[in-house]
Design a protein around this nucleic acid. Structure first.
Lengths: 208, 208
DNA sequence: GTCTATACCGAGATAGAC
DNA sequence: GTCTATCTCGGTATAGAC
């Protein structure tokens, strides 16, 4: 019944692409929830419904799989983009909502935090951040020091994720989202403003 | 030859207090550099010059040892304290200096970042932060929402440690310390200021 | 009472048989 | 393409040497 497949089996069973995709999807969940070290190969493959060795077969190693997971996680825009004037508040609001205590969002920053322990994982994450989120946010900010300012914004973002959801300090976990948004927006304001140069044209204003 | 030791061995050998302290000192180094999961009991005890079982004997478990390490790391003041007006700049400067690329400081925030992966370790760290750094910084800030503001400051602190030293993004690693101090101070300004209440008396103004 | 040696269990990675 | 040892490594428990 499970074995006897006649001619046309639509998908599943012996389809490399499907197996690969199933592993990748399962790995995103496991790595984000448990971090690079905490996620077990057996847990990932069990969730994907395949044997443990498939990871080595399709991704070379646990590390190779992690690299693809990072690319997939940071690929789509995380920080909502707006014109530069409203940027701090837009980021602050999204951050406050996504880090709310009951929310169970699968976020690349969670992946980052829980995987930063391992140097090998950290290096993979750095490449992912600089390529995707960092470049997008820098593009939204524009002007001189765009990358530096963007990375300071990401530092506050990651730190908020850390303190509010991973560590779970009481004051941050219990605060009202409106109030938190105000405070975060105020902290982000300085890095969204031009230092000395004139207002550079903002490119790629739709996504970030 | 290796075994025959005569009478008077000064200290060391069979001194519980000395052994305990040696393990603790070694554990601070290993946990800070490699995180909770990354540090092995064998590495720690080898550095301390004792057998691996001594951790179980003196601290119950690896987790118990970690709890004492967290307390010791967060115990002494990390954030330099000043009067409230100069607080943002003081914190920013210390942060910029301590996260400079070549600096090899043993910092509690590094310990936090590299250990946050494990839920058990995260819980221990939360207690340590709230008890020590969080309470001290909240005391320096004073007024309403002191704890919330303090924890947002710690979020930026931890995030800067993360992005600059653990992940190691290029823009943050290469920036001039003076410039970084300015930007960080500007970001910290909003959380050091009173929201609506009058100026509350600042207690414990010497250390933070 | 202080410490070491040895063994057990679980997890990741590899090799080779089917 | 899958399964089954097997190797290594890490945290822990027990026994016993000094």
């Amino acid at each position: 019944m499970l074995i006897s497949m006649s001619a046309a089996q639509p998908a599943r069973r012996r389809d490399a692409a499907v197996t690969r995709e199933a592993i990748l999807a399962a790995a995103v969940i496991e790595f984000t929830e448990n971090g690079y070290a905490g996620a077990g190969v057996r847990q990932i493959t069990e969730r994907a419904g395949v044997s443990a060795m498939m990871i080595n077969r399709y991704f070379g190693s646990k590390q190779g799989l992690f690299a693809e997971v990072v690319d997939r996680s940071f690929g789509p825009p995380t920080v909502v983009g707006a014109e530069r004037s409203g940027l701090p508040r837009a980021i602050a609001q999204a951050l406050a909502e996504n880090t709310a205590p009951d929310t169970e969002r699968l976020d690349p920053f969670l992946l980052t935090l829980r995987s930063a322990s391992d140097p090998e994982a950290a290096d993979i994450v750095r490449r992912g951040i600089e390529t995707h989120v960092g470049a997008r946010l820098a593009g939204l900010i524009g002007g001189s020091e765009a990358e530096l300012r963007a990375q300071l914004g990401l530092a506050l973002t990651a730190g908020t994720w850390l303190m509010r959801t991973v560590i779970g300090t009481h004051a941050l976990a219990g605060v009202d989202n409106e109030r938190l948004t105000e405070l975060l927006a105020a902290m982000l304001e300085p890095i969204a403003q031009e230092a000395d140069a004139g207002p550079a044209p903002v490119r790629d204003a739709s996504a970030g």
